[in-house]
C-alpha cells in the first residue's frame, strides 16, 4: 500500500456450517442466548421464523410498494384528468369529459405497475444487490449455501466478537465446519 503501513485486515466474521435447517435454527437460538447480536444466516431457501430469532425486522420493502402504488394511482388519474379533461378534451357521444368511472382502469393498472417496479427496486437496493463479491463467498463450501447446507455467521462488528471464542462456541454446537470469512485484499 502507498502508506507503507499495513492496516490490520478486518474479517467479515466467523461462519459455521450446518447440515439441516433444524440444526441452524437451534444454533441461531443458542447464539442469541449467548449474547451475540450481529448474526446472519445463509440458507438455500427461506426458513420461516429465522429472522425473528436473529431479531431482524425491515418493513421498508412493503412500505415502498405501498407508496409506489399510491404514486402510480396519482400519476394515472392526474394524466387522465389533465389530458382528457383540459388539454385535449374529446367529445365522445356527448359524455362528460371528466367521467371518472371510465378513468379507473388506467389508474388501476398504473397503481400495480408502479408498485411492482418500486418493490423490485426496493428489494434489490435494500439488499445491496447487485454485489458480485462478498467476503462470505470465501468460506469453504459456501457454494452449498444455495444448495443443501445452512450457514450461520457471527459478524465481526458484533460487540462481543472474539474470533477464538466464537469458533469455540460454534464447535460446541456441532457445526460441520467452522471458518473465518476473510476479506479479499
Amino acid at each position: 500500500m502507498s502508506h507503507g503501513v499495513m492496516e490490520p485486515v478486518k474479517n467479515y466474521g466467523v461462519v459455521a456450517e450446518f447440515e439441516t435447517s433444524d440444526a441452524l435454527i437451534a444454533a441461531a437460538k443458542k447464539a442469541k442466548e449467548a449474547g451475540y447480536a450481529r448474526l446472519d444466516a445463509y440458507t438455500p431457501f427461506p426458513i420461516h421464523g429465522l429472522s425473528d430469532i436473529i431479531e431482524f425486522r425491515d418493513y421498508r420493502v412493503r412500505w415502498a410498494m405501498f407508496f409506489g402504488g399510491v404514486i402510480g394511482a396519482m400519476t394515472g388519474i392526474t394524466l387522465e384528468v389533465y389530458t382528457g379533461g383540459f388539454d385535449y378534451p374529446i367529445n365522445a357521444g356527448g359524455k362528460p369529459f371528466l367521467s371518472w368511472p371510465a378513468f379507473l382502469p388506467v389508474m388501476y393498472e398504473c397503481t400495480i405497475l408502479f408498485s411492482a417496479l418500486t418493490g423490485l427496486l426496493a428489494m434489490i437496493t435494500m439488499n445491496g444487490l447487485p454485489m458480485p463479491y462478498h467476503p462470505v463467498f470465501n468460506v469453504p463450501n459456501f457454494e452449498r449455501a444455495s444448495q443443501d447446507r445452512f450457514f450461520l455467521a457471527v459478524e465481526s462488528h458484533d460487540p462481543n466478537y472474539d474470533e477464538e471464542k466464537v469458533i469455540e462456541f460454534f464447535k460446541k454446537l456441532k457445526a460441520t465446519s467452522v471458518s473465518v470469512a476473510w476479506e479479499d485484499q
Binding site: D40, A41, Y42, I47, S51, F56, V61, A122, S146
Partner: peptide, 9 residues
C-alpha cells in the same frame, strides 16, 4: 447469497 436478511425482504 441467500442471507436471511435478503430472504426477509
Amino acid at each position: 447469497r441467500g442471507s436471511v436478511k435478503h430472504w426477509e425482504r
